[in-house]
Amino acid sequence: MKQTPKLDRIQRLMQPGVISKEGFLGNDTRKLADIIEDDQRLVASLGLTHEMIADVMEEITDAGRETFGSPKMVGKFLKVTVEGSMGKIASPFGGLYNKENITVLNIETNESITWTTLNIHMIRDHGFYQGKGSCYRIEPKNIAKIFKLKQMI
């Protein structure tokens, strides 16, 4: 994948303090094209696609959104909390998204994962899981756990 001028511009918007306080890249110094390509390989090696991952995240988010910040059990093991704020956040790729923090806790293993509505869009539409070290990076390996969790729903 080639780092185009468009990706350069998007990567500038991902820097800390531009759209969000900490940005989207963490301590990752790779080019955006390389981050996306490396994650694409990882996702494929897990037998998944960006769309499959985003679908599951969205399904869990939609279920949790119904309780406006109160935890909600989804299936037997997943406790989902969706905390919404007023206002919108811009995607570095374009478009505005609701400010929502989604926390999913597996009450059996006590493992949890947190994402935002923006994560879902960036994964589905751009295959971007955020840079290494970013507090909202979704590790493709951890996604496999979500799928395992999903099977319990």
């Binding site: 959104r65 119904e66 406006f68 910040g69 969706v82 919404g84 704020s85 007023m86 609701n98 929502e100």
Partner: peptide, 10 residues
């Protein structure tokens, strides 16, 4: 109404 988009929609 004033609050999060999820609350407003519901």
């Amino acid at each position: 109404l004033c609050g999060s988009p999820g609350m407003i929609d519901a």
